[in-house]
């Protein structure tokens, strides 16, 4: 894991200033792939640290929603709330975390939508397979990341997750970020 962290740090530290579109595309792809690995590896603190201090993870219940603030949301979490979620998951009495639980994220179809000196807006598609006890569930949809360029590399200002399953009934619930 230490190796993974080191690689990630090196990668996000690389400045995109002056880099060509291919370099930006490549750097963003690597960022999104590492993000998926952090989730699947249950590296929750490292995942939270990918966000800017005011960054937000948002999963709207309907694709028509245009902002997270003041709206019903499946997730609308800043770093404080993300920390609550992480601490809950790690608590020994989080009963629903006791059984076998693994995920596998695949991220693809990565398109840079907008790029300025400070920010990049990028959309992509994801597919997550979840194993809980003997049951497999699939969650899939679109990410839209607003990434900020910082000295440490890209940081997430807003991660919007439009899950295709979002409007269907949930068989059980979702315990961690998708």
């Amino acid at each position: 894991m230490a190796k993974l962290k080191k690689a990630l740090k090196k990668l996000v530290r690389r400045k995109a200033n002056g880099a060509g579109i291919h370099e930006t595309q490549h750097a963003i792809e690597q960022f999104l792939f590492r993000q998926a690995e952090l989730l699947d590896g249950k590296q929750w603190q490292d995942y939270i640290e990918l966000f800017t201090p005011d960054g937000v993870y948002w999963m709207p219940p309907e694709p028509s929603h245009t902002h997270w603030d003041g709206m019903p949301a499946i997730f609308a979490e800043d770093r404080n709330l993300m920390t609550v979620r992480m601490k809950r998951i790690l608590h020994p009495d989080a009963w629903s975390q006791r059984p076998l639980w693994e995920t596998n994220h695949v991220v693809s179809n990565i398109i840079v939508e907008k790029e300025t000196a400070d920010e990049v807006q990028v959309r992509s598609r994801f597919h997550m397979l979840e194993l809980r006890r003997d049951d497999v569930r699939h969650f899939a949809g679109a990410y839209r990341h607003t990434l900020k360029r910082t000295r440490e590399g890209f940081r997430i200002k807003l991660q919007r997750v439009d899950m295709t399953n979002a409007q269907a009934a949930y068989d059980y619930v979702i315990q961690a970020w998708v």
Partner: peptide, 9 residues
């Protein structure tokens, strides 16, 4: 678990 996590934060 959630109560304690929220209380710490």
């Amino acid at each position: 678990s959630t109560g304690r996590a929220a209380h710490e934060v």
